[in-house]
């Protein structure tokens, strides 16, 4: 469904993404994992041509994206931005309904879809629909951003840390809803996160990047059992390490050597 071939992005001398080849099959969710500045956002944006690659190619649904009209492509691909980017001059409802309105949906259909999505991301349609985005909390804005990406029922989604600003409980519930929607609609997605539990929970496969390079790609089980290197091992070990820390805290109380 999504094929990246030898994808490279250079900014002057600096290489943000280096010779990246990956495939995401139909209905699959691929998690992009890696430290800050390792090229996750750059990769995501090259898929819907918000950034043009320096070399390599991207295929979506078998079509080379460089041959497509950018706006046609982007209307088919839902994108949730890391910085959210809600339009401040539009209401929450108008923000969510923007891609459907560009696609020429009827007002009724748009209103219906907006309310449905607001409920899905656990915001009350009645009180939220007509508010300004600036009146929402950061986490609420982020949820609206996800709803906006989902609005036109895309078959391909790119999500850049979509639940990063949420409390753990809300995050857990939204992850559940997201898993459900994906199943129902058969969405193919690339999902960036720093949260290892989220990666393990949502990802069919996980790709680990380091300094723009692909270090390893595989199912969560593969990565846990056979990490390609130390970096991957440490990364994947994070949840267990944290669980041990919690256990230690519970049995001994906080102390200098609680690790």
């Amino acid at each position: 469904m999504i094929e990246l071939q030898h994808l490279t992005k250079r900014y002057g001398d600096q290489v943000a993404v280096s010779d990246l080849s990956l495939e995401v099959t139909e209905g699959e969710l691929l998690v992009l994992l890696g430290g800050s500045g390792c090229g996750k956002t750059t990769t995501l944006k090259m898929i819907n041509r918000l950034i043009e690659p320096s070399a390599g190619s991207v295929r979506v649904d078998g079509e080379d994206v460089s041959q497509l009209d950018t706006h046609e492509l982007r209307r088919r691909v839902g994108y949730a931005f890391q910085q959210v980017g809600l339009f401040p001059h539009l209401t929450v409802g108008e923000n969510i309904g923007i891609t459907p309105s560009l696609l020429g949906w009827t007002e009724d259909a748009i209103r219906h879809r907006v309310d449905e999505l607001l409920a899905l991301v656990e915001l009350d349609p009645e009180t939220t629909r007509d508010r300004d985005p600036s009146e929402l909390s950061g986490g609420q804005q982020q949820r609206v951003g996800v709803a906006r990406a989902l609005a036109a029922k895309p078959r391909v989604m790119l999500l850049d840390e979509p639940f990063g600003a949420l409390d753990p409980l809300t995050r857990g519930r939204l992850q559940d809803s997201f898993i459900r929607i994906r199943r129902d609609l058969g969405v193919t997605a690339v999902f960036v996160t720093h949260d290892m539990v989220e990666a393990l929970r949502l990802g069919d496969r996980i790709a680990v990047l380091d300094h723009g390079r692909l270090v390893q790609v595989g199912t969560p089980g593969t990565l846990l059992r056979e990490p390609a290197d130390d970096y991957v091992r440490q990364l994947l070990d994070t949840p267990r390490r944290e669980a041990r820390l919690v256990d230690a805290l519970l049995s001994h109380g906080p102390g200098p050597d609680s690790r």
Binding site: L50, H71, R74, R75, Y79, F81, L86, F87, L103
Partner: peptide
């Protein structure tokens, strides 16, 4: 926001 405008198509 310019980028978001492009991103939504």
């Amino acid at each position: 926001l310019q980028e978001a405008a492009r991103g939504v198509g």
